[in-house]
Design a protein around this nucleic acid. Structure first.
Lengths: 229, 229
DNA sequence: GGAGCCAATAATGTCGACATTTTTAACTTA
DNA sequence: TAAGTTAAAAATGTCGACATTATTGGCTCC
């Protein structure tokens, strides 16, 4: 599975680099949920010592992508039906907050960013193969599109939470894709959702936009929730 | 200033302990906003080596209580009018989400916890001196009261965000108190707010509860926002 | 006198080493 | 054979040391 390339490195030192790689490896499922993360394994994979590794793991601990037990090291955060439901539901509420506030605060540059991102997404969707690389390119554009909308809320703290929840949700999505690659995108490639959302947002129709975005984010959850881990 | 004793240690190793102490020192203003956090200083204060320190700082980095620059070490996260507004506003939205969902999901034990916490808070408020220790005891009960309500939402991810925002907001509150200790509690000791909130919550009146909690959390912001840093 | 340069000092970030704890595996004993 | 015990092996968490980078202070030169 290719990198999600979503993880922004905190700093350009060794710990920051390994943070991005390790996060990617967890989100893409290279390291499985619950898997023990032995230092010898990580040292060999990322070619660094324990210090940068422990710093990166400490950060992933706060983001709840790993768990720790004293003197017993780190594990990948386990997945569960309950957590998946929690993440997706909270994410829909947070995203809705972003959209509503963006509609209140967004300026002309924000609107321009939305139509630009929507255009790119639409073009990408039209020539969408079922290949893994295409799928990941589309997902990047998909996320960029929604970020273009959410960004208008102009609240760093909300956007911070939003990013964290996206990452946690993307792990469930990626794990699912890993097993069901055939009809992979059926559950979120529906272009109509996006057209309707853009219309509501640009019309500054908060209520409609809120309803649409919540539904848009909960639809994949309904598709994934019967996935047996 | 006494410890806020709010920071839950991640694990009982050295890094987990120093995380709690360092977080407290930042939230209470022992280390000032923007202050350089030199390793020699931290080593001397917490009696540990650089490894646990860097792990703790890495976690505070994610929680945005410190900032880092490569090869230039860590600083306490600066404060600003803009961040304060952002934190308090987002916090009011998140807390409202918690309350509304708690009203939907809360059970009998949840209701019992609320009336118990409200009772303790009321008793504490009646014998409230203006001493620093009293003030911190009251604030602990105050937070416990609101947590008793929010807990009913039964969403770990929402409660996680909520805790993080509380901590960030508490720093602004503590910094303000440090300079204005005289009439310290006037802006949030109003018992009527709490009585009304309990009534609305127990009556499962979401709209009223949402309005009350948002107002309750934004009131201190209005009091603090003219505070010149 | 002030700006620019250079050496000396100090600080950061990373590694290997070590003490402590956990895990594994063999061995005893009933 | 299965459970309990003990020794060996492995893994974690922390420290001190070191290379690299940033900062300070003095010196020269204009």
């Amino acid at each position: 599975m290719p990198s999600t390339a979503t993880a922004a490195p905190g700093s350009d030192n060794s710990a920051g680099l390994v943070l991005g790689q390790l996060k990617d490896d967890i989100l893409t499922g290279f390291f499985s949920p619950g898997e023990k993360l032995k230092m010898t394994t990580l040292k060999a994979r990322y070619q660094v010592g324990v210090s940068p590794l422990r710093e990166a793991l400490s950060q992933l601990l706060v983001e709840q992508l790993v768990v720790v037990e004293n003197q017993r090291g780190f594990k990948v955060h386990p997945i569960s039906q309950a957590e998946m439901q929690d993440i997706y539901q909270t994410r829909s509420h947070i995203e809705a907050l972003c959209v509503v506030q963006a509609i209140e605060n967004g300026d002309d540059a924000w609107e321009a960013g939305i139509v630009a991102a929507a255009h790119q997404l639409k073009k990408s969707a039209s020539l969408l193969e079922q290949s893994e690389a295409d799928l990941h390119r589309w997902e990047a554009l998909h996320q960029a599109f929604h970020t273009a909308i959410a960004r208008g809320c102009q609240s760093p703290s909300l956007l911070h939470v939003r990013r964290s929840l996206y990452e946690k949700a993307s792990r469930y999505r990626n794990l699912w894709l890993k097993q069901n690659m055939i009809d992979g995108v059926v559950f979120d490639a529906n272009q109509k959702d996006h057209n309707d959302l853009v219309d509501a947002v640009l019309a500054r129709d908060s209520d409609t936009a809120e309803r649409l975005i919540k539904e848009h984010l909960l639809a994949p959850y309904r598709a994934l929730k019967n996935f047996v881990y």
